[in-house]
């Protein structure tokens, strides 16, 4: 389960996308005001510099993370009675999340050099293909 938790840890990453706050706040823990400034700064930088599509991706990932976290919480509190249903529901979220993350990596202009062969259109097509597979498996698995 540990990796799962790690998974839900990643959730804030999307939220605080560039995520300097965590870093800087840990370094200068004493100065709250300073930290706030840095957070604000990073946030502004993020809002300005990130392409809109990446922002969109981040929104979607945030959404998925929230849904996934909710399901996981529910599972912990109420129990995982139809285990296959829980697995299907949760892994649909996780799967969609990693696929979206992959798409984000591939389409992010910053990673252009890594993916010379993959155009954003191709990446998107791959993404849709993968997602359809995922949805098919999940719906089939939940019966």
């Amino acid at each position: 389960m540990a990796p799962k938790k790690a998974q839900s840890h990643t959730a804030p990453s999307a939220q605080s996308a560039s995520s300097t706050p965590a870093k800087s706040s840990s370094k200068s823990s004493g100065n709250a005001l300073d930290a706030q400034e840095i957070v604000l700064g990073v946030w502004n930088k993020y809002v300005e510099k990130t392409p809109q599509r990446v922002k969109l991706l981040d929104c979607f990932m945030l959404f998925l993370a929230v849904v996934g976290a909710l399901q996981f919480l529910y599972c912990i509190i109420v129990g995982n009675f139809p285990f296959n249903a829980f697995l299907a529901g949760f892994s649909a979220c996780v799967g969609q999340f990693v696929l979206t993350a992959s798409l984000r990596i591939q389409t992010n202009p910053e990673n252009k050099k890594e993916f010379e062969t993959t155009s954003p259109e191709r990446a998107f097509a791959d993404y849709v293909f993968g997602s359809f597979l995922l949805h098919f498996f999940c719906v089939n698995f939940i019966n």
Partner: peptide, 25 residues
């Protein structure tokens, strides 16, 4: 079937929310 088990509704919801989110996205 899964929808006959009330306990599974949450997860079914989870899947379809994900799918809907995907489509919207």
């Amino acid at each position: 079937r899964s929808w006959q088990i009330s306990g599974a509704w949450v997860w079914i919801g989870g899947i379809w929310v994900t799918v809907a989110g995907f489509v919207a996205f």
